[in-house]
């Protein structure tokens, strides 16, 4: 089943006082099946963050459409956007984005509280989720007491607790050391195996190698994709690295 369809997406930035235009995305087309794990790879400035922001409804495209489960998210009214994000999307950020003012438990509850969910339901969902992410012991701590890896696991719990259709991850391993990165990527893979669709944006070949499919983006265009098929992550990574050096190194016109 087709979950997400991106059609002719274009985004042009123009500063208020100059006529100069910056094209961040041009004619981006791709689609995501339900249950897929996709990585979008690109250098900084390639337009991958703009793409993610557009999918996340944090940014409006200049033209084109993003269809999630049959709804065009670019047509959603401004005042319904927050609700849409809360109900259909889950976010994992590079710098975790936990609120210092809330305890770990409350940080995870946050989207459900905003959605006026019942306390009992929140507790039940957390009970199921916490052991999987290995955060059951951390629930009563404050975010500043946690390590980076722990923080990111809490952030994942917050993304998953709403049972979203699509989880969007923005460089989830960028702020982590190698060991923590590895275990986090394994964790995301495991989550994907339970049927959760994940879309990740990254510039790291290691991170991308855990996905089922990798899209390459440069100068605002998707120009290549690789399937992992049955390969091991290490093997897949070599191909990704090679593609990066070969394709991204050359000028794309």
């Amino acid at each position: 089943m087709m979950l997400l369809q991106v059609n002719h997406l274009q985004k042009i930035f123009q500063t208020r006082f100059s006529k100069e235009k910056t094209i961040a995305l041009q004619d981006v087309n791709f689609s995501v099946e339900d249950g897929e794990y996709i990585a979008i790879m690109g250098e900084s400035g390639s337009g991958k963050t703009t793409l993610l922001n557009t999918l996340a409804t944090l940014d409006k495209p200049t033209s084109g459409s993003v269809i999630l489960n049959g709804h065009d998210v670019t047509k959603i009214k401004e005042n319904k956007l927050a609700e849409f994000r809360r109900e259909h999307l889950g976010f994992i950020f590079q710098d975790f984005n936990l609120l210092d003012t809330l305890s770990v438990r409350d940080n995870i509850f946050l989207p459900l509280v905003l959605g006026r969910q019942k306390v009992r339901v929140m507790e039940q969902r957390l009970e199921k989720l916490a052991p999987k992410l290995n955060i059951a012991d951390l629930l009563n701590k404050q975010p500043f007491e946690l390590s980076g890896g722990q923080k990111q696991r809490v952030a994942i719990a917050r993304a998953l607790i709403t049972e979203p259709e699509l989880v969007l991850a923005d460089e989830p391993t960028a702020a982590l050391d190698f060991k923590n990165s590895e275990s986090l990527l394994a964790l995301l893979e495991g989550i994907n195996e339970t049927g959760q669709t994940i879309l990740m944006v990254t510039h790291s070949a290691i991170a991308a190698s855990h996905a089922k499919r990798v899209l390459f983006i440069k100068d605002g265009r998707i120009f290549h994709q690789l399937y992992r098929a049955k390969r091991e992550a290490a093997e897949f990574m070599q191909e990704i690295s090679m593609t990066m050096t070969n394709l991204l190194g050359t000028e794309v016109r």
Binding site: A56, L58, E78, N79, L81, A82, E83, R85, R86, E87, F91, F93, N97, L98, L99, D100, T101, L110, P111, L114, G115, R158
Partner: peptide
């Protein structure tokens, strides 16, 4: 920063 995060997670600007 908090309000940015809150909005990303799903707090509307009216809220």
């Amino acid at each position: 920063r908090s309000f940015e995060i809150l909005q990303e997670v799903g707090l509307s600007s009216e809220e």
